[in-house]
Design a protein around this nucleic acid. Structure first.
Lengths: 184, 184
DNA sequence: CATCTTGTTCATAGATGACTGAACAACGCG
DNA sequence: CGCGTTGTTCAGTCATCTATGAACAAGATG
C-alpha cells in the first residue's frame, strides 16, 4: 500500500534524525519522536507514535513528557488524551542546551586551568621545580575563552518572530554560512 | 610537597578536558591522556601516565595506541619503550572526525529525506493520500544542506604552517570569532 | 456500572562501554 | 642466560542506558 511506503520512508528519516541527534546530547528516541510528529501532517497520539516507530508505549510516554518539557512538542487541546504537534523553532532549546551543558564543561576546564597555572607560577617564584609547561596551559586557557565567546554568540542568536519562523531562521543561517565561507 | 600540588591541579585539568572531549565523539580517557602529555614539560612513558592519572596500564596502552593512530601523540625516539610527546595542532584530527562521522550522519539524514520526499510527491501525482508534510521535509532537507556547507568550511580550515602552529591557529580562530560576532 | 482505550510507573532485561587485573611478549641489562 | 621493566592482550566486572511488559490510574464510551 502507498501509505505504508510513505510511512516506511519517513520512519527511516526519523531513525537518521535520531542517530544524528544522539551525538548532540539528546537521546535518539527524542529525535525519532520529534521528527515523526513534525513531518506528519496531523497531530499524533502517543499510541500512534509508538506503533509507527515500532517501540513500546512506555518508552514514548517518557520521551513525549521530556520533549514537552523542552518545549519541542505541544499538546493540541486541553483534555487528557490530547494529541501532540511539533514546535518547529527548536533553536531556543538548542541554545538552552548549549548554555547549560557546554558552558559548564568549558567553565570547568577554565577554572581547573587557572588553578594549575597559579600553582605552577607560585612554584616558579618560590624557586621550586616546575613540572608543567605554563605556556601551553595559557594557550589552552585562551582556547577555552575563545570557545566561550563562540558559545555566547550562538546562544544570543535570536529566532525571527512571526509566522513561519523556521523557514526564516533557516534562510538566515544559510546566509550566515555563506558569509562565513568568505571569511575563512 | 609542591610537585604533588602541581600534579593534582593538572590532573584536575585532565579530567575536565576528558569530560569536555567526551561530548565530541572521543573517549574521556583520550582527553585525559593527551592533556597530561601536552602539559607535562618532558616526554612521558605509559607507566608514568597511568600512575599520574591513577588508572591501569592496560587502559593507557589502548588509549595511547589510538592517540598515536589519530596523530595526536608521537613517540620520541625509535626504541621500543620510547616515551611520548603531544602533537599540539589537533585541528587535522578534529577535521577528520568531522569529515567522517558528522558528515555520514548528515548524509544519512539527507538521503532518507530525499527518499521520503520522492515517495510523498509520487503519491501526490497519483492522487493517493499524502500522509506527511512535504514542505517541512524540504525545510529539513535544506537544513541538512546548510549543515553540510558549514562542515565543508570547518573541514577546509587549514592550520598555519611553521613553528608555533597552535598559537597562530588560536589567534586566527579568535579573530574569526570576533568577526562572527559582528555578523550575527 | 462495566468496559475499552490511553497514558504513566516501575522492575527488569539486554546491550554497550569503560576499566581492571592477570597472563603474556618484547626487550634492556646484570 | 636469568631478571626486571615496559607495553600488549584478553577475559571478565561493573556501571550506565535503552527499551520492554506488566500493573496501574484516569477518562471516555457503551
Amino acid at each position: 500500500m502507498a501509505a505504508d511506503r510513505q510511512t516506511r520512508r519517513v520512519v527511516q528519516v526519523c531513525e537518521a534524525a535520531g542517530r544524528f541527534i544522539e551525538y548532540w546530547g539528546f537521546k535518539a528516541i527524542h529525535g525519532r519522536v520529534w521528527t515523526l510528529v513534525a513531518l506528519r501532517a496531523v497531530p499524533l497520539s502517543q499510541t500512534e507514535i509508538a506503533q509507527t516507530l515500532g517501540v513500546s508505549r512506555s518508552l514514548i510516554s517518557g520521551a513525549v513528557a521530556e520533549l514537552v518539557d523542552y518545549g519541542l512538542l505541544r499538546p493540541v487541546g486541553t483534555h487528557r488524551n490530547a494529541p501532540y504537534e511539533a514546535v518547529m523553532d527548536f533553536w531556543p532549546t538548542i541554545a538552552d542546551v548549549l548554555r547549560t551543558r557546554e558552558w559548564m564543561l568549558l567553565e570547568g576546564a577554565r577554572v581547573a586551568l587557572e588553578g594549575a597555572i597559579d600553582e605552577a607560577e607560585y612554584a616558579q617564584v618560590t624557586g621550586e621545580p616546575v613540572l608543567f609547561d605554563v605556556e601551553r596551559m595559557k594557550l589552552l586557557l585562551a582556547l577555552t575563552e575563545v570557545g566561550q565567546s563562540l558559545l555566547r554568540i550562538l546562544i544570543g542568536m535570536r529566532m525571527p518572530r512571526g509566522g513561519e519562523r523556521f523557514a526564516t531562521w533557516l534562510k538566515n543561517a544559510s546566509g550566515l554560512v555563506g558569509k562565513l565561507r568568505r571569511l575563512v
